[in-house]
Amino acid sequence: MLHSLLKKLIKNQSGTIRMATARIGLAVAVFLLLIAVQIQSNYHFLLESPNNKDSIADFLVINKVLDNDNLGNSELDSNLIKEIAKQPFTESVGLLNPSRFKASIQSISNQFPFYTDISFESVPSSFIDIKNAEFAWNPTATFVPVIVPNMFLDIYNFQFSLSQNLPQLTPAIVKMIVFKLTVYGKNGPISFNAKIVGLSDRISSMLVPTEFIEWGNNYAEKKSGENVSRLVLKTSDPSNPAIATFLKKNNLSTNTEKLRYSKYRKVIDTVVSISGIAGGIMLVFALIIFTLFIQLTIANCRPEIILLITLGATPNQLSKFLIKQFYPGNIKSILLATLLVVVFQLGLKILLEQQLIYISPMISWYTLVIAILLALLLWIVTYKAIQKHMES
């Protein structure tokens, strides 16, 4: 009978519409906060997932921005290289060592007449996307292995071959062709056989083993300078806006296509931050309003509560009952918000799959933890609000 009487009093004093409005407002605030957390989790998942990770984009070839003020001074200062290596977004740095000798390459087949002057670069093997046991050299080797950019083959097949009436080539055929590679020095030209052992999408220059670069520079009596003009930056997150900011600050550039996601990330981070801040502000206001709502309801029932205490009901009994009346509704608001986030995540997964972008169909455990923490926070707020009025 006590619980029945109290339930009728609370219902009459709080009002069904006011109670529902307070809980809907709370659910909206929680939903915005959880959505902000889930979007951020999805974004990190996209960056780290092997299904979405672009290994090519993890390596950025960096050089100076050339203009009228620094023409002829394209070398990267050693202090700048050390500064790049110390940046939080840097995993490792590989120096591109250029050839400083004159060289040419030509085909030895009459069916494929080809000749051009050429230059090379070398880079530590860990920065090369082609893993080939043949990519090594010494003066007794039967041929010089060369890695060329994929775009060179595209240029040849779709431009050069058409204009020169030459056959188009597949990667497999290119790797079968033997070229004559000539290095020029003070002791005259010296020729080697050369073969293409791989096609790279990472570095847009002709790569040969470091040993050949060092040999050629020594043969041409050219010093391999300590400074280089280009380097390869390995980073776990090429979309990090800090990379674009650092490059701009130091007058450096890289393939802008590989940094295009940094602009998108700034937009995403801004939207997520606004959503999170809005959800946080709304949650604070919802908690304040809900606390005032509880206090007002108890204040309106105060004469009846005093009467019940006089008749033998303890404050502890009344507090437990009031918590049971208010707190389960708060849990329902959080569950509703969490369910909406689950629906949102499933819909987003289906939408992104159409764009060949894959995310988890389940909400992240970060989102669940935040929801549990909010439930705990609401219990504390509800308990404190009731205790404050029961003791006064």
Rank of each mutant, 00 (worst) to 15 (best):
M1L: 03
N12G: 08
Q13E: 12
A22V: 10
V30G: 07
Q38C: 05
Q40K: 15
N42D: 13
N42H: 14
Y43H: 11
F45H: 15
P50H: 11
N51A: 10
N52V: 01
K53F: 04
F59Q: 07
L66I: 15
N68K: 15
I81F: 05
K86R: 14
E91T: 15
L96P: 10
I105M: 13
Q106G: 13
S107F: 09
S119D: 08
F120T: 09
E121K: 15
N132E: 07
N132A: 10
A136L: 04
F143E: 06
M151I: 08
Q168Y: 06
I173M: 11
L181I: 05
T182S: 12
N187F: 04
I203W: 06
S205E: 08
E221P: 05
E226V: 12
P238N: 10
I243N: 11
L252D: 07
S253N: 13
T256S: 09
E257K: 14
L259H: 13
Y261H: 05
K263E: 00
K263N: 02
T270I: 01
T270V: 05
I274D: 03
V284F: 11
A286L: 02
F290Y: 08
T297A: 11
C301S: 15
I309C: 04
T314E: 03
P315V: 05
L318Q: 13
S319R: 13
S319D: 04
K324G: 05
I334V: 14
L335Y: 10
V343P: 02
Q345P: 03
L356Y: 14
S364N: 15
A371M: 04
T382N: 07
I386F: 05
H389R: 14
